[in-house]
């Protein structure tokens, strides 16, 4: 089966069938990372370019490892070392890279819509690895994989997403992907960090953490984006923590089997308490492990797509 899209630009455009197929394929890829020889020859001779205009450890490394475990050649380019510093614009940079015949480009950019813009100018498949506050589809997929591997299913699960929804591409991608999979989403945070029109997406909005996590299957805690908090949306981090840090107390009324996930990087003690983060309910490191498998699946499926429909 092939995906219905040539590129992965957003979670919104993925159908239920696409998501299921990606998760199933990723489940099969997971085993490769546990082998003594963590490499299969599948994408030998393929070239993957990681074009990252924003800092990243987890996502960039995850894409790089995923490509290498499939025997592809992976080239990393970061914004600060690229010709954009000399004034070259994004489209020119991408077109020049495409002239060297890569098979996939993975793009992270601080501007929402940058990968979608590039997809109009270059032919090779693009994976959006995070664009501004818009989307981060591979993160949503790995979150779903992590939840599904614990629960066995997704349909009907209730999820609370807690924190800075405003700036969060992870939240946007997850809301869409989770709704596609038949899950119910509640967003939780101070009114200043929740976009005014989000109820229109069909999510429930809450400003009370302890009440909001009472009956959910999963709590997704978002990072307070310290680099984006100079707009006076929070009076202080301490005040935020008092109300919205996920602690044992705020989880007192939650279900015993509630799962805790966080896309990382974590600000310990600000959005999530240490003991919660390290409790057996926390799947934060499982998410990272699953991230590699999800990205292997995306590379594998996209290159199939590309080969089957040469344009």
């Amino acid at each position: 089966m092939l995906l219905s899209t040539k590129s992965i630009l957003s979670a919104k455009e993925l159908s239920k069938q696409d998501i299921q197929h990606i998760l199933d394929t990723a489940d099969s890829f997971k085993e490769i990372s546990t082998r003594a020889i963590k490499k299969v020859p599948t994408l030998r001779g393929k070239t993957i370019i990681n074009l990252f205009f924003e800092p990243s450890t987890r996502t960039r490394t995850s894409f790089e490892i995923a490509g290498k475990r499939l025997s592809a050649d992976v080239i990393n380019i970061s914004g600060s070392t690229s010709s954009t510093v000399k004034g070259e614009n994004l489209i020119d940079t991408a077109q020049n890279l495409e002239a060297m015949n890569p098979d996939i480009m993975v793009v992270r950019h601080q501007c929402s819509g940058a990968p979608a813009l590039l997809s109009q100018f270059i032919d090779c498949p693009i994976i959006n690895a995070g664009d501004g506050a818009h989307e981060h589809p591979s993160q949503a997929l790995l979150d779903l994989m992590t939840i599904r591997s614990q629960k066995g299913y997704l349909e009907g699960l209730n999820v609370a997403i807690v924190g800075d929804i405003n700036h969060s591409r992870v939240a946007r991608s997850n809301i869409k992907a989770m709704q596609t999979m038949g899950m119910k989403v509640r967003i939780v945070g101070p009114p200043t960090l929740i976009p005014a029109d989000f109820e229109r997406l069909g999510v429930e909005v809450s400003h009370n953490l302890a009440e909001a996590v009472k009956d959910v299957d999963v709590v997704m805690v978002l990072r307070i984006q310290l680099e984006r908090q100079n707009q006076g949306l929070l009076s202080s981090l301490r005040e935020y923590s008092n109300y919205f840090c996920l602690t044992s107390e705020s989880l007192a009324k939650a279900r015993d089997d509630v799962l805790i996930i966080h896309p990382g990087p974590v600000n310990r003690g600000i959005e999530i308490a240490l003991d919660v983060m390290e409790s057996p309910r926390s799947l934060i490191l499982n998410q990272v492990t699953n991230g590699v498998a999800i990205r292997m699946a995306l590379f594998y499926l996209l290159l199939g797509e590309n080969n089957a429909n040469p344009n």
Partner: peptide, 10 residues
């Protein structure tokens, strides 16, 4: 150019 078979676990 053939459609890929579904990948299952090893």
């Amino acid at each position: 150019g053939l459609e890929k078979p579904e990948l299952k676990k090893t």
